[in-house]
Amino acid sequence: MTGLYEEIREEPAADVPVRRVSITVNGAKRTADVEPRLLLAHLLRQGFTLTGTHVGCDTTNCGACTVLLDGQPVKSCTMLAVQADGHEVTTVEGLAGPSELHPIQEGFSDEHGLQCGFCTPGMMLAAKALLETNPDPTEDEVRWALSGNLCRCTGYQNIVKSILWAARKLQSQAGT
């Protein structure tokens, strides 16, 4: 578990109790012994080296750290790792295999939905949760679903287009 406490910059002392958590991350069962104060975002990034989950504001505003918890988008900087014990977490690394793109990722590529890319993982996971419950959203519905995810580059226009692109692609795939 190298680096798990990188953010905290101190390994727990011998007398600090740790808890074993078992979390299904992107379909694979992962376990770790964590201090209860460790945040889910830190466990994912430093414990499991899934650095696609970004920590932006660290104050529950920006949504860069969004992951899916049992399919629902949540802010992983605002949840303790111990609270994910026994649950399923999907990060951006779980959207598609290493050599392929998920239609949402293709959409962001095709429609230029990112510039610096920092907010993109959170945007894509929020979009995934939306498209699973609402496969054919209106532009307003996309904007509503993304209202907790901040982007400082794009002005959102192309992000919305990317997600609508992905919705069409997913629907055409489902139709064939």
Binding site: G63, T66, L69, P73, V74, K75, T78, G148
Partner: peptide, 9 residues
């Protein structure tokens, strides 16, 4: 209330 992710929790 807040934003969609906060509303989920």
């Amino acid at each position: 209330v807040a934003d969609p992710m906060v509303r989920n929790r």
